[in-house]
């Protein structure tokens, strides 16, 4: 009981994830600033932002649904933190695992997007509604390529459990190199899931104010920002576990350090994409995801099938 509480609240649960999440946001903003030849924010900036938001009073619009408006941000945070429990970080075994937990992780990572939709929808504000509908429209574009790309390595390992997958790739150390195309696809899809810049039309501040979060203030906005920070780390951890499963049989603290390096690498790639690209319109985004990203993910799937049947 006590150890379960420790796992949920401290490590690798809420506290540890929040620490990683705020650090990830700092790294993202600092790198972004350095790419633009600026100095950038100090190291405590994301924490200061969160504390300030939690100390502010909150305004709930009269027309908004009072219950949904309050509950939805907490659901976003809870879903992302839960997903992390199934991802292996200091070895080949996650804290909890069962057959098919890969699907559960993807499902739990879909929940935040739905909470963005529900939060925007129940704000009953025009900008928030447009943002909400865009975020769900975008969901249909990136979710399929992401699922296909993540399933390709699972197919090669012949299991739907993330822990068994990492074990398979530890026994066969170089097989992860077959999935590099899928890694690229998943990385681009992750940009869509996190609503980062090339795919940030759901919260495009230059056209629809702040998208789904337009009416959110104070504490509730804080929960959402917290959830987004954590989601970035969980998404990067999922990609690291699925596509970069090397060096997992080393000494556990070393594996943990390697894990931190892997998610740092993925976060840097996400920031690079944010810096060099401009926002895509929502229809361009869907075009790109269905015409290019999904076929490439299919190619990866078929490639893995052929390799599995003919060579391995």
């Amino acid at each position: 009981m006590l150890s379960a509480l420790f796992n949920i609240l401290i490590f690798p649960g809420l506290f540890f994830l929040s620490f990683l999440g705020t650090t990830a946001e700092y790294i993202d903003r600092k790198l972004y600033a350095r790419f633009q030849n600026r100095v950038g924010p100090p190291w405590f900036q994301p924490v200061a932002d969160l504390i300030k938001l939690f100390a502010k009073s909150e305004v709930i619009p009269e027309e908004a649904d009072p219950v949904m408006f309050r509950v939805v941000p907490l659901v976003a945070l809870a879903a992302t933190v839960t997903a992390f429990l199934y991802i292996p970080i200091w070895g080949t075994e996650a804290l909890y695992y069962f057959k098919g937990d890969l699907i559960v992780i993807i499902y739990l990572l879909t929940l935040p997007t739905f909470t963005f939709f529900l939060g925007g929808w129940y704000s009953r504000s025009l900008y928030a509604t447009i943002g909400a509908i865009r975020s769900v429209t975008q969901l249909f574009a990136y979710e399929i390529p992401l699922l296909l790309a993540v399933l390709a390595p699972a197919l090669l390992a012949n299991t739907w459990s993330l822990s068994e997958m990492t074990e398979y790739y530890t026994v066969h150390p170089w097989y992860w190199l077959f999935n590099l195309v899928g890694f690229g696809v998943a990385l681009i899809a992750l940009l869509g899931k996190l609503e980062r810049v090339p795919f940030d039309s759901p919260e495009a501040e230059t056209e629809i104010v702040a998208g789904s979060f337009t009416e959110y203030s104070g504490r509730f906005l804080g929960w959402f920002r917290w959830a987004i920070d954590v989601e970035a780390v969980v998404g990067a951890s999922l990609l690291a576990a699925v596509f970069l499963p090397f060096g997992l049989s080393l000494w556990p603290p070393l594996v943990f350090g390697l894990y931190l390096l892997k998610i740092l690498f993925i976060l840097c790639l996400l920031t690079l994409a944010r810096t060099v690209m401009a926002r895509l319109r929502i229809d361009q985004m869907i075009d790109f995801c269905w015409r290019i990203l999904a076929p490439v993910a299919f190619f990866q799937l078929i490639f893995d099938l052929i390799i599995k049947e003919l060579i391995l």
Partner: peptide, 19 residues
Amino acid sequence: TPRFDLERFGVQLKGTPRH
């Protein structure tokens, strides 16, 4: 603009009065 880089002090321009 980046020349003055107000993000050093945590200043961010927001689109909505709620934030």
